[in-house]
Simulated assay, not measured.
Amino acid sequence: MNGCAAESFCRVKDILKSNSLKKETFMCTKPIVNTHVCRTSTEWKENKIDRYLCMPDEDVCLSEYTQSIYDNGTVISEHILRCGKSSECNLHITITHPKKTIGIRTTCCSTYDCIPPTVHASFVKVPQPEYNGLTCQACYSDGSINCVSNNTMVCTGTQDHCIIYTSEKKHSPDPYSKKYGNSVESLTGCGTKDCCIYGRSFVTFDHHGKTVNITCTMGSSNINFLSYLSWTFFALILLQYVNTLL
């Protein structure tokens, strides 16, 4: 027989049945269901907070603040509370495309039903102008989960990874969510190293759900080629100088 028991029950090795002298042996195992509970909220219901039972691999409560800056100057901020993994804590993500820049900051707390601190200030900065030698595919689609383009962009500063970013919001057909509608968005461009840690996130709240995926991909680098040209040029100058001495 399998079932649930109190922790004190697991300290007993043997018990006797009340109606016989036969001994019953048993073993306690760790539960496969997480008992960690976190508060959840989204920008759809800013003044309402719910509580959510986390998945087995989620061990912290996470605050995720996202800020997006579009090429026309529009700035959109979003704050989400959700369950998360320890590896997602204290991330500082920047993703850049010519049409849109996305910044994500995360903070965590690890106790039951805790409220993590939130970064509310503007933090998306203009990418540093120094070209770092990486070239990535550049594509942006507002309305499609798949973005395909032959365009490329050069990466600058600390954005030394090629990124694929997708965001999908779904809303159940209840009378209170009709005004929101479903939306999808995809982007490829340059990003910081924390993008490779983020992975996939999901939050559900009051008939709404949002899924974000961030993955790192391979790009093309010109650093080694430029270094090779520099050393080749130096060697030719040195050889020419040596010949003048002979």
Rank of each mutant, 00 (worst) to 15 (best):
E130R: 14
E130C: 08
E130P: 01
E130T: 13
E130I: 12
Y131T: 11
Y131K: 13
N132I: 03
N132L: 02
G133Y: 03
G133S: 03
L134G: 07
L134H: 02
L134I: 05
T135C: 02
T135P: 00
C136T: 08
C136D: 06
Q137T: 14
Q137S: 14
A138Y: 06
C139E: 09
C139N: 05
S141P: 05
S141A: 12
D142G: 15
D142F: 13
D142T: 15
D142I: 13
G143D: 09
G143P: 01
S144G: 03
S144V: 03
S144Y: 02
S144R: 11
I145D: 07
I145T: 09
N146F: 02
N146G: 02
C147H: 06
C147P: 03
C147V: 06
V148K: 10
V148L: 11
S149H: 04
S149E: 04
S149M: 09
S149D: 10
N150M: 06
N150F: 03
N151L: 13
T152I: 05
T152A: 04
T152V: 11
M153G: 11
V154G: 08
C155V: 00
C155R: 01
C155S: 04
C155W: 01
C155D: 01
T156R: 00
T156W: 00
T156P: 12
G157N: 05
G157T: 02
T158K: 09
T158I: 14
T158L: 13
T158S: 13
T158V: 15
Q159D: 14
H161N: 15
H161A: 13
H161Y: 12
C162L: 08
C162N: 06
C162R: 01
C162V: 10
I163K: 12
I163H: 04
I163F: 04
I163E: 04
I163G: 10
I163S: 09
I164Y: 03
